[in-house]
Each structure stands twice: as structure tokens, then as C-alpha cells.
Amino acid sequence: MSKIISIHSFRGGTGKSNTTANLAALLAMDGFRVGIVDTDIQSPGIHVIFGMDDSDMKHSLNDYLWGKCDIKDAAHDVTGKLGADVKGQLFLIPSSIKAGEIARILREGYDVGLLTDGFRDLVDKLELDYLLIDTHPGLNEETLLSMAISQALIIIMRPDSQDYQGTAVTVDIARKLDVPNMLMVVNKTPQAFELEDVRERVEKSFNCEVVSVIPHSEEMMVLASSELFVVRYPDDPVTKEFRIIVDKIKA
């Protein structure tokens, strides 16, 4: 059975999209068929990491939500971005980056139920092993819905006080929605922090396992979403942490 996995962070700037893209890349490199859906309709961004811009998008998630196309038609094969000899396949369903189309979604609203139907349809038609949902930060009905239908939820936070507060809310909600697997990831940990201390503090705060504490990475910042980190730096400690998360997903 394929797995639907939501990636969420309560606040922005946690590196959610970069983490999603890199986890998906590693899964595809391991030979799996993987899909990513960008449900951050109000500020799409993950397509950039795969080197896409407006002109590369035949169809977007928005077109599907308006009934202009099948969800499958909005899937773009981005396997080529992972380098040579990739056994698996990676698809991205981007959100539109036309200001007018974003404004239109705001004005007209859309059928959230279509999203879930679309996710399940994608899994079937593209024969996916994993579908990763890059959610909108914070909480709204769409995010709750993504969580509700996921077999696993990856929660990404930074170790700062606002994130602690907000993440507690997300954890509480995930528990109420009976999400079967909750994977906590601490990202962008400042150099001055002891990684193990951070892990302990987070585990204590939320009473759940922390899968990975990722140190702040200057390489990642300099890369600035222009490429996939795991492709460029296969032996970096950050890539090793991504691997640990991927192993957890596969388990």
C-alpha cells in the first residue's frame, strides 16, 4: 500500500519545502515512485528547488481544482533533476505562481474534497509508493484535511520559543486526528546549541520521539533553494540526517 505523508510546520521559515524536496529525492533515488503536491496555494515555492518556473508548468494544482484538467496532467516528471541512474521516479504537482490565479482561488474558493480525491487518484494513476504533501504553514481546513488522510505526519520546527508554542498545537491536533505516525524534525539548529540537548528538550515538551535534529547549515543557506541539497552534497551531515528520516518513513 502506498503511503500519504504530510509535511507541516506551524510557522514558516523552518525549511519545510526544502526538507520535503530532499526527502522525496532520496526516496526516488532508492527506487521508489514518489509524488509531491504543493498545497501551499497562497505562497507556492517547492517547484523552484526543481528548477521550474511559470513557463515549465503545463498545468498546476489550481487547474485541477477548477476542473480544467485531470490531476495526472498536472504532474511533472522531475526525475531528471536527481542526476543520472535514478531507479525510481519523482513527480511534482505544483501550485500556480500566477498572481491572478492565486487571487482567483481566494475569490472563488475551491472544493477541498477535490484535494483528497485528487491525492488518492494520483496514487492510483501514477502507481506511487509515496505521496508527500507540502502543506501551508499554520492551520486551516485544508491542512487539517491533509493530516486527516495521511499515514504519517512530519512536523518540522526550529528550536525557538514561538515554534515551541505553535508546534504544541500541531502535535495536539495530530493526536486528536489519530495520525498513525508522527515524525518530529528539528531544523536549522544554531551552531551554539548542543544537538542532544535540543532533542531531549523537544521530546520532553511534546512527549514524542524526535527523529532528527538537523544543524543549521551554511551550505544549505548558500544553495538558497537553487538545487537539491542531497544531490549536491551527498556526504554532508545534513544529508545523513535526511537519510535517517527517510529510513523512518520506509520502516
Binding site: A99, G100, R107, E108, V112, L114, I149
Partner: peptide, 23 residues
């Protein structure tokens, strides 16, 4: 799970919506 997100129609002032229309 057929839930619609909230519609924005008529909530923003007309002159703002008009400027967005030709996008």
C-alpha cells in the same frame, strides 16, 4: 470530504477586485 473553502466574493472592495480581474 466535500468542503469548500470560503469564498471571497464581494468581501474585498470592488476597486481592488477590478484591478485583479485582468491578471
Amino acid at each position: 470530504l466535500a468542503v469548500r473553502t470560503r469564498k471571497l466574493n464581494d468581501e474585498l472592495p470592488k476597486e481592488i477586485l477590478n484591478k485583479l480581474d485582468d491578471l
